[in-house]
């Protein structure tokens, strides 16, 4: 079963259109949603949670149409962390427990306080006095403490220092050890996504540029640095992006479509995304 299925999703605003997006997240997997600011990642997440209405397309979450009456109840099984924690500034972590106990039908108080201890979060300090890292950890503790089957994280690790990010990524990895659990994670920090994701969806200016298994992407694509004449000799369908300098051409290419004699460079997910976003195709 797929934890999320998005088909031909379109949402139009005056100055932006999320245009005919389709992807799926298989159960037990982690998907990274990549894209620049304003690409449409947060809009996609809001549409998945039915927080805004779509213009066309279909969205199924945990086997349920997200516009069906049952979806409101199904939200009990979805943990969401947004780019900010958005809790009222005067409440404490202990207050959050009381609020969430009356919000989620499957709220696990013990798990919540265990997470607070694990994250070294004070129970009685008011939220406004938390650091950014503490605020995000509190939001993650809430998202994990109602036995969710799906976690949706929108820039949840941005602005955190590498130590905290690593700690949180480890928790996400633990979460998907239960193969019924899945994660959709949007982030600017592509290196984080490369560490933990099974699938990558890349949205650029409201359009889905890429949706692929991460390992397959890294197998299929490579970066080469060649002279202009060598570049001209490449088959056009092999080139997915390029950067031309005075001396050479750096290009993202499909590995199986270039001569094996060409020397390839170590290629990261970030290289692939940057070439696709910035490098003009042939």
């Amino acid at each position: 079963m797929n934890a999320i299925e998005v088909k031909n999703l379109t949402k139009k605003y005056n100055d932006f259109t999320l245009d005919n997006i389709s992807f799926y997240l298989p159960e037990g997997s982690i998907m990274g949603l990549v894209g620049e600011n304003g690409a449409g990642k947060s809009t996609t997440i809001k549409l998945i949670m039915n927080a805004i209405s779509r213009d066309s397309g279909e969205i199924n979450v945990l086997g349920c149409d997200n516009q069906s009456p049952g979806f409101e109840k199904l939200k009990n099984e979805i943990g969401v962390v947004l780019d900010e924690a958005y809790f009222p500034e005067v409440i404490t972590a202990a207050n959050v427990n009381s609020i969430m106990k009356h919000t989620y039908s499957n709220w696990d108080e013990k798990a919540y306080f265990d997470y607070l201890n694990k994250f070294s979060l004070p129970k009685d300090k008011v939220f406004k006095d938390f650091s950014r890292g503490m605020k995000m950890k509190l939001a993650i503790a809430v998202a994990l403490s109602h036995n969710p089957r799906l976690l949706i994280l929108d820039e949840a690790t941005s602005g955190l220092d590498p130590m905290v990010r690593d700690e949180i990524l480890e928790i996400f990895n633990d979460f998907t050890r239960d193969e019924r659990n899945s994660i959709l994670l949007s982030s600017h920090i592509i290196s984080d996504l490369e560490k933990i994701c099974d699938y990558i969806a890349f949205i650029h200016k409201g359009r889905l540029m890429l949706f692929e298994e991460k390992d397959r992407l890294l197998e299929e694509y490579t970066v080469i640095k060649v002279s202009k004449s060598d570049f001209e000799a490449l088959p056009p369908e092999a080139v997915k992006g390029k950067k031309v300098t005075n001396f050479c051409v750096e290009a993202l290419v499909l590995k199986h479509k270039i001569p094996p004699s060409l020397e390839t460079q170590h290629t990261t997910l970030e290289d692939i995304v940057l070439f696709l976003a910035k490098g003009d195709g042939r």
Binding site: M49, A51, K73, K75, L82, Y86, P88, T103, Y104, I152
Partner: peptide, 15 residues
């Protein structure tokens, strides 16, 4: 609620 953008978060909850 407006100050802390609570509604953005609440839209993700079973409300």
């Amino acid at each position: 609620d407006e100050r802390c953008k609570w509604n953005t978060l609440a839209a993700m909850m079973p409300y």
